[in-house]
Each structure stands twice: as structure tokens, then as C-alpha cells.
């Protein structure tokens, strides 16, 4: 196995030429998102350069505090992203989503890093990339689950009111909507598992193989991380929705949304 080829900056910049292809297609199909393409590419580049610089600094000065700070910033940003996309939900619901995402995300991170990989939680080389994958996927899952739940809730408003009016308790009327949204949030992860290794080598495995890790080691990491992602997605969405829906009615069992 060879060590990874370090990209030459000039050769690397060739990849940006591919964006011209995207631009051409957009022009041809009259998709007015050229500005977004430009902004997105720029943001990605700047954010990753920053991440690269910060990680270089942390790896050279491996103080536990840096790892903890990085983890906290990542979690906070994930929570912020979800809440800014779901402004309509009430305050208590938002708190529940934030606590669920942070609580389940960090628990799975601790279990994964300390028990499965078996290194210190303060080892930035493991904790930062792996927790990024775990918390990032939890964020996607909760975002998907929340959106589906909100859509379900407004689409099924008549049903909910009809059931409450005849003496069905709000939990009994609402849990089917919670369960349906949980299923929606889990489907992408489950479908991704099915195609894994056949259609493409997944990201983590690709990275490890590129840097010279034995394939059998990299598949173990890959399997472990996918199971961790499935677990964190179901846990985070379950906690968010299962505790969150209880904020939608008051003590008199009246809907408040």
C-alpha cells in the first residue's frame, strides 16, 4: 500500500474547471441558480480551508479543551441549522429538539470513540471526524423527521380534531403521526445500507483506503460508523418527536398549535 499522494495546488485547482460544466448546464436549462452555485462553492472552499487550518492547529497542539470546544461548536451549529429551518415550532419544542440532538449525539459519540474504537475521547484525530459524521447525520435525520411531522400535522389537522372531539386523548391521536415521521427519517439511512459497497465505496472507507489503510480495517470502521449513524438517527428523531409532540396540547388536552 502506498501513502496518499499529496495534491499539488495547481493540479488541484483543475477540479474547479468542472464547475464550468455545471454552469453550462444551468445556462442551457435556464436554471437561475448560478449565484447559488457561486456562493455555495465559495462557502464550501472557505469553510473547508478554515476547518483544515483549525484541525492542523489542533493536531499540533492536542489539548483536550480544543477537542471539547470543537465538539461543542459542531453540536451548536447542528442545532442552529435545524431550528432555523423549523421556525414555526413552539419554544418548548425547540428546547426538546436541541436537548435531544445534543444528548443522543454526544452519547453515541462517547460510546463509539471510547468503547468501539477504544481511544481517548480527547484524541482529536478520531473524535473530530467521527463525531462530525455522527452529529451531521443526526442533524439530517432530525431535520427530515421534523419536516415530515410538521407536514403530517397540518395535513391531518381535520383527523386530529375529529378524534379529539369524540374523546380520544391527544397522545393516542398524535402518536401515529410521530411514528410515521420517525419512519420517514429512518428510510434514507436504511436504503443507503442496502447499496453500500456495491454501487460505491462509502466516504469514510474511501478516505481510509486513499490514505493507505488495509481494506479489511476500513470496512470495519465503515460498518461501525453506519450502525452508529442509524442508531443516532433513530434515537435523536425519536426523542425530539416523542417528547416534542407533548408540547402541542395543554393540560385541558386542547390542541395549542
Amino acid at each position: 500500500m502506498n501513502e496518499i499522494v499529496v495534491l499539488n495546488l495547481w493540479q488541484f485547482s483543475l477540479v474547479y474547471l468542472l464547475l464550468i460544466v455545471v454552469l453550462a448546464i444551468m445556462k442551457k436549462c435556464q436554471i437561475n441558480q448560478t449565484k447559488l452555485l457561486f456562493v455555495a462553492s465559495l462557502r464550501m472552499t472557505v469553510q473547508l480551508v478554515l476547518a483544515g487550518l483549525i484541525l492542523t492547529f489542533i493536531f499540533e497542539n492536542p489539548h483536550p479543551l480544543f477537542t471539547v470546544l470543537y465538539l461543542a461548536a459542531m453540536t451548536a451549529f447542528a442545532i442552529y441549522t435545524i431550528l432555523s429551518r423549523n421556525k414555526e415550532i413552539n419554544k418548548r419544542f425547540k428546547v426538546i429538539v436541541a436537548v435531544s440532538l445534543a444528548g443522543t449525539g454526544l452519547s453515541i459519540v462517547v460510546f463509539f470513540i471510547m468503547a468501539v474504537v477504544g481511544v481517548s475521547l480527547f484524541n482529536p484525530q478520531y473524535t473530530i471526524p467521527l463525531s462530525g459524521m455522527i452529529i451531521g447525520n443526526a442533524m439530517t435525520g432530525v431535520g427530515l423527521g421534523l419536516r415530515s411531522f410538521r407536514e403530517n400535522l397540518s395535513a391531518q389537522r381535520n383527523r386530529t380534531e375529529a378524534l379529539l372531539s369524540i374523546g380520544v386523548s391527544p397522545p393516542k391521536a398524535l402518536t401515529p403521526l410521530v411514528n410515521e415521521s420517525l419512519e420517514t427519517a429512518l428510510m434514507p439511512t436504511l436504503h443507503a445500507m442496502i447499496g453500500m459497497g456495491i454501487i460505491s465505496l462509502p466516504g469514510l472507507m474511501t478516505g481510509q483506503i486513499l490514505s493507505g489503510v488495509m481494506p479489511m480495517t476500513s470496512i470495519m470502521y465503515q460498518i461501525a460508523i453506519i450502525i452508529a449513524i442509524t442508531a443516532v438517527t433513530s434515537l435523536a428523531v425519536f426523542c425530539s418527536l416523542h417528547f416534542g409532540y407533548k408540547t402541542l396540547y395543554n393540560k385541558r388536552q386542547q390542541m395549542t398549535y
Binding site: A162, S165, I166, G167, Q254
Partner: peptide
């Protein structure tokens, strides 16, 4: 109790 009440006083929307 609101739920029991609604079973007793049933509202057909």
C-alpha cells in the same frame, strides 16, 4: 377530566 367529558359530551364536527 377533558377526555372523559368529550366521551360523554360527544362533538360531531
Amino acid at each position: 377530566n377533558p377526555v372523559q367529558l368529550r366521551q360523554e359530551v360527544l362533538f360531531c364536527r
